[in-house]
Computed example of a mutant assay.
Amino acid sequence: MQAAPLQSKPHYAILDGLRGVAALIVVAFHIFETHATSHLDQVINHGYLAVDFFFLLSGFVVGYAYDDRWGKMTLGGFFKRRLIRLQPMVIMGMVIGAIGFYFQDSAIFPGISEIPLWQMLLIMLIGCTMLPVPPSMDLRGWGEMHPLNGPAWSLFYEYIANILYALIVKNFSKMALSVLVFLSAFGLVHMAVTGTNGDVVGGWSLNAAQLHVGFARLMYPFFAGLLLQRVVKPGRINNAFLWSSLLVIAVLAMPRVGGSEHLWANGLYDSLSIIFIFPLIVYIGASGGLKGKNESRVNKFLGDISYPIYITHYPLIYIYTGWISDTRKPISEAWPVSLLLFVSAIVLAYVCLKLYDEPVRKWLSGKFLR
């Protein structure tokens, strides 16, 4: 049975652009992370908060797209739409991870060349389903739930958020949703401030500690985004893309707070940024319009590549990390390769978008969504 057709809504173009800005910062963050000795000296220090920003954006957009459509849409129709939007690039990310896997054998990833092909392909197939694997099935020793493409862990939680929304939270009143968001904020602050690392980094491994981090990072931003969409009416703000982009860059590029002696201070920065600044950024972005063709094109390009670049760039980072571990080159010497990696990640994302993601989603929509 095919899902009923739904009339399309105008979308928030600036929010698409902001997602792209954050995704590019994630790529740069992972490049610099290869050269860091710890969280304390990481360049673009808070780039990991882009994930939490993505969750908040997702909650806002899902609420805007579907809250008023449940009388015309079944649960099956909702899940079909979300799968068609997300799953094709999940599969592509796993395939790219598999293609690049045997190029990663290095001092930091020893023994990769000895892993049998069938084992790697099994992990790829499991990854294509979004099911996580336990640390015992990891291929490189990092304990990732998706060893061929680490950042897919956040898509695992994205799917959980969509399931919770569709089955339960869509029926919450504003008061009930506010209570959920308040409790989730408390849990986020507690996790960030009392954690052993003084930040919200984590969520990518299938063990109790990492699941705690993952759910703490998911619950507040996603459902706060949903609440924001329900209770706040966007205003009119001039130059909204400029101001909101600068805020995103400032939050993610902020140097480490508190040093090694006051880890709680950085945890407080992380949680307060997620709780207060990210909703403000989304409000600003939703309250503005685009001026001229150039700004529209920039936002469209950034929005188009945001998801593809996030879900396909990390196999390149694995290879780069192995190369740095073997050569021990500092960023001052490795920057040409770093720049090539950054550009290659953009090109790879765009090629995947145009030659695979858009055609596949169009075909799936035509077949299953009429």
Rank of each mutant, 00 (worst) to 15 (best):
V200A: 05
F215M: 10
P5Q: 11
Q42H: 14
K329P: 00
M92F: 12
G202M: 05
Y64G: 10
F278D: 04
A240C: 05
L355H: 04
S113K: 14
T312H: 05
W118F: 04
H35L: 08
D357S: 12
F301Q: 07
P330R: 11
D326E: 14
R230H: 13
V248I: 13
H262A: 14
I319G: 03
R361H: 10
Q2R: 14
P359H: 12
Y66G: 05
K293S: 13
Y159K: 00
M254T: 15
Q42V: 12
G235H: 03
I126V: 15
P88R: 00
S306Q: 11
F222A: 06
L56Y: 02
H146R: 04
A176Y: 10
Q42S: 12
V62A: 01
V179D: 08
M137T: 03
V251Y: 08
I277R: 03
V347G: 14
Y102G: 04
N149T: 07
A345V: 05
I317Q: 02
I324S: 03
Y165K: 10
A4R: 13
F32T: 15
P88Y: 02
W204T: 03
Y48I: 05
C352I: 11
Y314W: 14
W153L: 06
P234N: 08
A334R: 01
W335K: 07
L155A: 04
L247V: 07
G203C: 08
H39M: 05
R82Q: 11
G259C: 13
W335P: 07
L353M: 11
G202A: 11
D68F: 08
S338R: 08
G366A: 06
W363I: 15
S271G: 09
L121R: 04
R85P: 08
L167F: 11
G225C: 09
L353V: 08
A28M: 10
L188H: 00
K72F: 07
L188N: 02
F278W: 06
V251C: 15
A36F: 09
P308R: 00
L316F: 15
A3R: 05
I96S: 04
P134D: 10
M130I: 15
Y157E: 01
G93V: 04
W118D: 09
M145W: 02
D138Y: 10
A166S: 10
V298H: 12
N294S: 14
